[in-house]
Design a binder for these strands. Structure first.
Lengths: 322, 322
DNA sequence: TTGAAAGCGATACCAG
DNA sequence: CTGGTATCGCTTTCAA
């Protein structure tokens, strides 16, 4: 089905394509009589500007690529909502690329972004990712990048992460203040930067109280939490639990209710992405790391970078704590 | 930063752009010696084909638009995963547009899809949507559409939904077979088509057993479930519970554990989107409405429509039950 | 086996 | 105020 083009309109009205183009975008040079005729014609013939042609001409796609390590129910949906709200407001769209926890896939997605000429990239990295080699091409191409949540240490791109130290210490203090004597702390994937930083802060804080006994376990998934807890010999002796994420919490919660340990005097403190908490157990305490907020923040930083244009003007990469 | 183009390569190698273009895509006409030289040059000068130009030329974006009523943690993530797995395999990308439960926004998103010349549209509708008027333009433009999960009755576009009757009857039978005598059934928003159809099937089935007492409640959110249950006078007298979705289940679960009614002999049966179940309580029984499956199925149908090309050949819209 | 050239649709510069 | 024209990068006949 042939779609109406500017040229079609021009021929119908016996004027030039330039005039039609300008009339359509309300250029001040054009007489209002012409504008009216053009707009009417556009309306009747169902003219839809061809974004391909415009992108091609303008070398800007108004599209940004969102690369996430995996699409889970825990964090990603709220992040997407946050990103949406910012990008839609700015007339941008985005496509989602899930790395499925594979560094290789992540790398390919970056190629995809380059090929499809996205205007910018928002990325949260996989557990396997150790450096930013694969991102350097984006830098060369002068495609703005903002890394969020899961990152590796680097100073080439803006990044926004939660304030792990603050959140973790808050959590540790809750358990300490509650008078817990034996604490089980459940962390995520041991290889992740985020896990390590939370681990260190948590340990430091707890170790200031030598009488408190601390056991830490690392679990890549909620299922693994369940498994490990089930084979924990002295489960009942713990009087305090810490989970570093919604996912680890899920495993813990599942395990606690199975043993009828909910509604007990055990203290549970969680750093949570914020979706689940209100449905699990009123007695758990949460430090919320809001995905929506992170989404809006990261997207806003990207928009700023986009507008800054010439990147020579751009100061070096910045680190933001949420 | 100037990016290498085919023209650049052609000039460097003193051959024509046509030859370069063909060499790059391994056209049989081109001698292998030329191919090698071209590929080497492309490699060294970091040539990246310009998708804008290609799309423009080919009039195909390899992009499809995904419109969802809202981005929740319950269903959407798995649907997205399903869609991803199919589309990425076919070299397509997609962008996500969330209608935020607003018909108006949904309508705008459809315009967005048309303007950005997506090759196809996958859509799940808002609660406010009553007809497909706003989709007709897509038909005119010959953009293939597949409607999934939330739809209205129509016969213009392919659609894929869960088999509510089957799933609901299965659930009712579970409770009946377990010997439940007093059942509390929790449904979602009373205005939704999906709620009504599940309600009717459920009731019909239970009413075949006159001795069973059935109480039904409608709740727009998990929080409302919690509220209503908390003010239920004879809570303990129920020996069977039905929740029509993960969201209603969340409220029920929250309420059950609060009263220490988990791990009891109460029977809980749920029609679930499938993400949460394994983390809540092993004793609940689930009929899984798998979002991943729906995603792959809907995306596959869309791909088929895309390939069928000339739509005169296409038979009328089809309805699929999952 | 290769090259020349047209053209996809919109834009913007330069002229008038 | 309006028109002519080159151009973006690539693909694809048509010729050679």
């Amino acid at each position: 089905m042939k779609r109406t083009t500017i040229k079609d309109l021009a021929e119908m009205l016996n004027i030039s394509t330039s005039t039609v183009s300008r009339a359509l975008k309300d250029h001040p040079d054009i007489s209002s009589s012409v504008k009216i005729r053009v707009r009417e014609a556009a309306e009747t013939f169902n003219y839809v500007p061809n974004d391909f042609a415009i992108n091609f001409r303008k070398k800007s796609s108004k599209v940004i690529g969102l690369i996430v390590p995996e699409i889970t129910m825990f964090f990603v949906p709220s992040v997407i909502n946050g990103i949406s709200s910012v990008l839609n407001g700015e007339g941008y769209r985005f496509f989602i690329l899930s790395s499925n926890d594979s560094y290789q896939t992540e790398k390919e997605h970056i190629e995809t972004c380059i090929n499809s000429r996205v205007d910018g990239v928002l990325i949260s990295m996989t557990n396997e990712t150790r450096d930013i080699e694969h991102l350097k091409k984006l830098k060369e191409m002068e495609i703005p990048v903002v890394i969020f949540d899961k990152t590796v240490s680097q100073n080439m791109f803006d990044s926004v992460i939660f304030n792990n130290q603050k959140n973790t210490e808050w959590s540790a203090d809750k358990l300490i203040d509650h008078g817990c004597q034996k604490i089980l702390a459940i962390f995520g994937d041991e290889n992740l930067e985020i896990t390590q930083s939370r681990l260190i802060s948590f340990k430091n804080r707890i170790e200031q109280h030598p009488r408190i006994e601390l056991v830490t376990i690392f679990c890549k998934s909620a299922d693994m939490v369940k498994e490990k807890l089930n084979s924990l010999p002295d489960y009942h002796s713990f009087d305090g639990f810490f989970a570093m994420s919604d996912e680890t919490l899920m495993g813990l919660h599942s395990s606690l209710i199975k043993r009828n340990l909910n509604n007990s005097d055990k203290k549970v403190v969680v750093i949570s992405e914020g979706n689940l908490p209100k449905y699990l157990d009123d007695t758990y305490e949460y430090q919320i790391n809001d995905g929506y907020e992170m989404g809006t923040f990261a997207a806003s930083r990207l928009m700023e970078n986009l507008k800054k244009g010439s990147p020579d003007l751009k100061e070096s990469a910045q680190f933001y704590y949420l």
